[in-house]
Amino acid sequence: MVFTLFAAVIICTGAALEGDYYHEQLLTFIGIFTLLAVGLNMLMGYAGQISLGHAAFYGIGAYTTGALTVHLQWSPWASLPCALIMAGVIAYIVGKPTLKLSGYYLGMGTLGFGMIMHVLFREWTTITGGPNGLVGIPSLSLWGLDLSTGRNYLYVVWGCVLLTFFICDRLVNSRVGRALRAIHYSEQAASAVGVDTAKAKLQVFVFSAVVAALAGFLYAHMVMFISPGTFTFLASVKLVAMVVIGGMASIWGALLGATFLTLLPEHLSVFADYEMIIYGGILMGVMIFLPQGLTRGVLDIYEKFRAKRKGTVED
């Protein structure tokens, strides 16, 4: 029901924006970041784990499809599964040893992984084009339909967002999702009722990496040029900030966080110099004062306020 409504909103917005290239592109970018945020949110909000290298999985998706289509002239549709599988396998290798340990280790492991991937994107010139980037990535088309126009690509990206929302919603409300949420509340109790916590966390980490790679695929075929500067540690931190702003453990919150942090630099001209201070401040501030995330926290305060007022009225 909610999803049908959401789809309708997207279609109408797309129609309304016809020809407004700037806003079409902005909205498409919001879609790509929403994908990244919603995948990361599954890991952070539901499994209580953090990835500080999610931009690397985003990059793996982009560079895998970029390299296969540019160097080997593959069709994008053939490189898509490769990009997703590549990210999944690498996430498995990084996650396997770290997720058995306490929450700090996946953080440190992914932080290191992100930095190494950034070095690799920059240095492995024959494959990635090095610091100058990879040029000439083809745009998408399907059965003769050109998907690269502003509105069509917007629909492609938001179609993927909708699909991912749908999948996440099903996951959360299933045996698997319940186990994940249980781990978030009490890992000790979850394993005492028979949940293989390490396996569950590994699965969701791999899932979030695959979603990030999908976003990377969409990004690469949208801008048709990728360079290492997009996939930095700062980009990973920005994704964490989107999840934190949107509120952990909320699929729709990811949409909100991604929208907010995509629009903020557009409207804040001093942003560039103070970008890091702003992200750092947001992360610390929200976690200290509203650890449930900005949306959830504000809603909680509002509900408390309303309950209080209601209480006084009844008195």
Binding site: L171, S174, R175, V176, R178, A179, R181, A182, H184, Y185, S186, Q188, A189, A190, A192, V193, G194, V195, Q203, F207
Partner: peptide, 24 residues
Amino acid sequence: ELFTGMTVLENVLVGLHVRTKCGF
């Protein structure tokens, strides 16, 4: 040690984890 933010029913459903099979 309950999963405090989940419903009572969901808590018991997690208890059924080992007796059910549905995967990812």
